[in-house]
Computed example of a mutant assay.
Amino acid sequence: MDVAGEGWHVVDLSNGLESVAVAIESSSTVLTFPEFQYSPENVQGPGCTVDLSEVTLPGCPCLFHSCLTESCCCLQAHGQAYDITGTMLDLNRTDTGYSSPVFECNVLCSCSDSCSNRVVQRGLRLRLEVYRTRNRGWGVRTLEPIKHGTFVCEYAGEVISFDEARHRQLAQKSEENNYIIAVREHAGTGSIIETFVDPDMVGNVGRFLNHSCLPNLFMLPVRVHSMVPRLALFAGRDIDAQEELTFDYSGGYSNQPPAELLSTKSDVAMQASSTNGLQRKVCRCGAKNCSQFLPLDLSVLN
Rank of each mutant, 00 (worst) to 15 (best):
F64K: 04
E129R: 08
L89M: 07
G190R: 13
V102D: 00
F162V: 01
E175H: 14
G236W: 00
V50M: 11
L91H: 02
V152T: 10
F234W: 03
C73M: 13
P46D: 03
V282Q: 06
R184W: 08
L217W: 01
I146C: 13
Y179P: 02
S112T: 15
E244W: 04
K288A: 00
L217Y: 00
M201V: 09
Q292T: 03
Q169H: 07
R230I: 07
P257V: 12
E194T: 10
L89G: 00
F162T: 02
A77V: 04
S299D: 06
T69H: 12
Q279E: 12
F33M: 11
A4W: 03
G149Q: 12
V20Y: 10
T85S: 13
Q80M: 15
G5E: 12
C48W: 04
A272G: 01
N302F: 08
V130M: 09
V55P: 08
T150P: 06
E164Q: 14
D200G: 00
E243V: 05
S39V: 09
L91I: 12
E176W: 08
G277W: 11
L143S: 06
C285Y: 09
S273T: 10
T150W: 06
S100R: 15
S114K: 11
T87G: 03
Q256M: 05
Q121F: 07
Q256F: 11
E260A: 10
P145N: 03
E144Q: 15
Y155E: 06
A23F: 05
L233M: 02
V159C: 11
C285V: 12
F64W: 07
E154A: 13
G139D: 09
N117T: 00
Q242G: 02
C105V: 14
P199D: 09
L31E: 13
R284Q: 11
Q80T: 13
G59R: 02
G45N: 05
H78P: 03
S53Q: 14
F196G: 10
F64L: 14
T189M: 03
H148Y: 15
P145K: 15
S28A: 15
K173T: 04
C74L: 11
Q44L: 07
D51G: 04
C153L: 10
M201K: 14
C72V: 08
F196E: 03
V268E: 15
S112R: 02
H9N: 09
L298N: 01
D83Q: 06
L170A: 10
Q169E: 13
F234E: 01
N210T: 05
L89V: 10
S116V: 02
A235S: 11
L126Y: 12
G157K: 06
C73F: 08
H225T: 09
L108R: 05
R118N: 06
D198L: 12
E243G: 01
P40M: 12
L91K: 07
E41Q: 11
W8T: 03
L170V: 09
P46K: 08
L13S: 00
